[in-house]
C-alpha cells in the first residue's frame, strides 16, 4: 500500500473480554445491568473470575483501496474484531475510528436473514433491506443482483430448495450491491463453486479500486486464498495481533508456525505437513 493512501479505518488498542463459563457470564450480565441502572460504573478494564481477553489491545490501520486479510486459528478473535468494527458489539477498551465511511456491510453468515419459504426475489428485498438498502436502492439494484448471482429462474423458487452454493451466490450478490465503503467478509466465501468464488475475488479486486474510500477486510482460515487477493495480512493469535505485514508469504509462514506452537512437537509436525500439502 502506498504511503499516500488515507486510512479509512483506525483500530487503536481495542480490547474485548468474554467469559468462558455461560452461567457466570449470565450472572455478570445481570450484575452489570444492575450496576448501570443504579448509576454505578462497571470497570471494563478488569478481568473477573472466568473472563478472558478475546481481543487484547489490537491496533492497525486500514487504507483505502486495500484488501486486508485477517488470519488466525479458531478462537483467535477474528470474528470478534469484525463485530466490534461493524458496531455490532461494544468494545471494552480502545478506539475505532472510521473516516469517510458511509456504509459498512459485514457478511458473517450468508444464510442469516434469509427466509427459506420465500423466493429468491423476495429474499433480495428482505436481506437487502436488512443491510440498510432502501426500497428505491433495491429496485435499481435487483437486476444487478440477479445478474451477479447467475441464479436465473431459480430466483422464483423458495430459497429452501437452494443448495448452499446457491445461497452463497444470492447473499453475496445482495451484500456487494450495497456498495459499502468498508466490506467485511468473515469466512463468507467458504462455500460456492470455484467459478463463482473466482468471480467474487476478481470483482473484489476491481471493486475496491473503482471508487475512493473503499476497502475490504477479509477474514479467513484458508491461507491459500490470501495470496490470491490480499494486499496485506494481519495474524491474530489468542486475541493478540502478532503480525501485520505486506509480505504475505512471510505472514503465512508465521501463521502456520505460530498457530500450532502449543501442540506437542510430533503432532505439530504432522499438522504442518498437512497444512503445507493442502493449503500452502
Amino acid at each position: 500500500m502506498s504511503e499516500q493512501a488515507a486510512a479509512i479505518l483506525s483500530v487503536d488498542k481495542v480490547s474485548k473480554k468474554f467469559c468462558k463459563d455461560l452461567k457466570q457470564s449470565m450472572l455478570y450480565g445481570m450484575i452489570d445491568i444492575g450496576r448501570e441502572i443504579i448509576g454505578m460504573r462497571v470497570n471494563a478494564a478488569r478481568l473477573r473470575k472466568g473472563e478472558f481477553w478475546a481481543l487484547d489491545e489490537v491496533s492497525f490501520d486500514l487504507y483505502e483501496g486495500e484488501i486486508l486479510s485477517v488470519i488466525g486459528t479458531n478462537g483467535s478473535g477474528k470474528t470478534t474484531l469484525m463485530r466490534l468494527i461493524s458496531n455490532i458489539f461494544p468494545k471494552d477498551k480502545g478506539k475505532i475510528i472510521k473516516r469517510k465511511v458511509k456504509r459498512v456491510t459485514p457478511i458473517f453468515a450468508l444464510h442469516s436473514g434469509i427466509n427459506d419459504v420465500l423466493s429468491g426475489h423476495e429474499n433480495i428485498m428482505l436481506k437487502g433491506s436488512m443491510l440498510g438498502m432502501t426500497k428505491e436502492e433495491l429496485e435499481t439494484k435487483k437486476d444487478f443482483i440477479a445478474e451477479f448471482s447467475e441464479l436465473g429462474d431459480s430466483l422464483n423458487a423458495p430459497v429452501g430448495t437452494y443448495s448452499s452454493g446457491m445461497r452463497a451466490r444470492l447473499a453475496y450478490a445482495i451484500s456487494i450491491a450495497t456498495e459499502p465503503n468498508l466490506f467485511i467478509i468473515d469466512e463468507a466465501l467458504a462455500v460456492g463453486d470455484s467459478a463463482f468464488k473466482a468471480k467474487c475475488y476478481d470483482h473484489l479486486k476491481a471493486y475496491v479500486k473503482a471508487e475512493p474510500h473503499r476497502a475490504v477486510l477479509y477474514v479467513t482460515n484458508r491461507v491459500k486464498k490470501i495470496l490470491t487477493i490480499a494486499d496485506r495480512t494481519l495474524v491474530l493469535h489468542k486475541g493478540k495481533l502478532v503480525n501485520d505485514t505486506t509480505d504475505l508469504s512471510a505472514a503465512l509462514e508465521f501463521y502456520i508456525n505460530n498457530c500450532l506452537k502449543d501442540l506437542p512437537p510430533h503432532i505439530r509436525r504432522e499438522h504442518l505437513q498437512l497444512i503445507r500439502e493442502y493449503e500452502g
Binding site: 488498542k13 462497571v42 470497570n43 471494563a44 478488569r46 477498551k93 480502545g94 478506539k95
Partner: peptide, 17 residues
Amino acid sequence: MLKLYPITFLTLAPSIT
C-alpha cells in the same frame, strides 16, 4: 498516539443518558 488511561471505565451508552 492516543492517550489511554490506566483504568478505563464503561460509560452509560448514549441511549440511557
